[in-house]
Structure formats: C-alpha cells, structure tokens
C-alpha cells in the first residue's frame, strides 16, 4: 500500500531526475540492514547457512526462539518457547517459509507444533499447533512489523466416576482457540544484533471468554552466518 501511495505521488509530481550515484547511495542506505538478524526474527524465515535467535520478556509473555536457514525461499527450522506469568508454557518446533522476500518487504508463514502445559487452578495440557503470518517492512535500521496468529490446543478431560457398581472412566476432548496479534518495531543495531518492541494482543479461549488484557514485550535478537 505504501509503495502504491509513493508511486502515485511520484507520478503526480514530476521531480527532477536524481543523479545515479545519489540513487545508489540512498537505496544502499535503505537496504544496508535488510539481512539483519532481528528482521529474520520479526519477519520470519532465514537464508541458508544463517541463523537467528531471540529472547524476550514482558507482560504476560516471555520466551525465546532460535531458527536456522535450511533451504530456498528463506525456509527455516527452529525451536520456540513461550511462557505466560510462569504458569502457561508452550515449547514448540518451528517451520518458517518466506512468501515475499524483498529487501523492504518480508512476508512469511510459520507453523509451530508444540505442547501446552498450564499449571495452577486452571491446569491443562495438550498438543498445540499455531499458524502465524508475519509481515515486516525494513527501512534502514528499522522495521515495523505485524504478526497474526491462530493457536489451537487439544485438551483432554479424564473423568473417573467411582460408584458401588464399579468405576467408569470417561475421556472427552476440548478445543482451545487463541487468536493473537503482535504489532511492533524492530531496530537493527548491527546486522548481527538488534532489539524489538511489541504490543501483544490475544484472545485466550475465544470466543467464550472475554478478550485478554493486552501485553507488551521487549526482545533482544542476535544471529550469525553470511549476512
């Protein structure tokens, strides 16, 4: 959308032709950090032989992610761990693929296969799958980004009824759905190190429960390999 607006403005207002070296300099400045590790984290995917990681903390979520590029189209595999208030934990395996891979636009899809464990009064556990779409728009050192996700957990209830006639055991399943979104900005300090700040919106156990209280997090990203 921004590109279209820029294009229409450019068409409507004839500008003096820039000299070739100035264009090159400006373009180079804008894309200098396009391969920064922090953009791999917020935008998804990694180039072959590169890797990236992130640790983040905030309210209510904290966690870590590590990914390594293994194939074409920014295909990356990795691990992801998140926890909420040290009561809800979800370790997962990660598969990420870039759908749009341009210096100033990253669009990717992630699949996370994990296991949810929640302790405390509302204890629950079960397999979890989460699909995420990530969009990042790197410009120079900064990249605003948005992540949309849909998380699904299969919960199992085991009920044992003890009577004089004997015990009966019942197994039932429930589906917990949590749509979520994160909007934030990533800053590349170097190509290897960066930070990101995001607002986390989630709707835990939707649509039955009230929408969750928004959260916020600050992350430190790092990476290596040819960038």
């Amino acid at each position: 959308m921004l590109a279209l607006v820029f294009l229409s403005l450019s068409l409507g207002t004839p500008a003096p032709e820039p000299t070739e070296p100035a264009v090159d300099t400006r373009a180079a400045r804008r894309t200098r950090f396009a391969e920064a590790a922090v953009f791999d984290i917020v935008g998804g995917g990694s180039r072959p032989r590169t890797w990236a990681g992130r640790v983040y903390g905030g309210y209510p979520w904290l966690g870590a992610r590590g990914q390594v590029g293994v194939g074409p189209s920014g295909l990356a595999v990795g691990v992801d761990f998140e926890a909420a208030r040290l009561r809800r934990f979800r370790p997962a395996l990660l598969l990420s693929l870039r759908w749009v891979d341009r210096p100033r636009v990253r669009l990717s899809g992630d699949v996370l296969l994990g296991w949810l464990v929640q302790t405390g009064e509302l204890h629950k556990r079960g397999p979890n799958v989460e699909l995420q779409v990530r969009l990042a728009l790197p410009t120079g050192r900064a990249a605003p980004y948005v992540m949309l996700g849909t998380s699904h957990t299969l919960l199992t209830d085991r009920t044992t009824v003890i009577t004089a006639a004997g015990d009966t055991r019942d197994l039932t399943f429930r589906h917990e759905w949590m749509p979520r979104a994160t909007i934030g900005v990533a800053i590349a300090i170097t190509r290897q190190i960066g930070i990101e700040l995001g607002i986390d919106l989630a709707w835990y156990d939707a649509p039955g429960r009230t929408p969750s209280i928004p959260g916020i997090h600050l992350g430190l990203a790092f990476g290596g390999g040819p960038r």
Partner: peptide, 15 residues
Amino acid sequence: EFLSSRFPFPIDLRP
C-alpha cells in the same frame, strides 16, 4: 477453578 475462569487472561493464571 470457577473463580479463576471468571478473570480475564492473564490474570486468571495468578488468581
């Protein structure tokens, strides 16, 4: 458990 379920997430994690 009942009371916890009435709090919004993530307050319900530490009722």
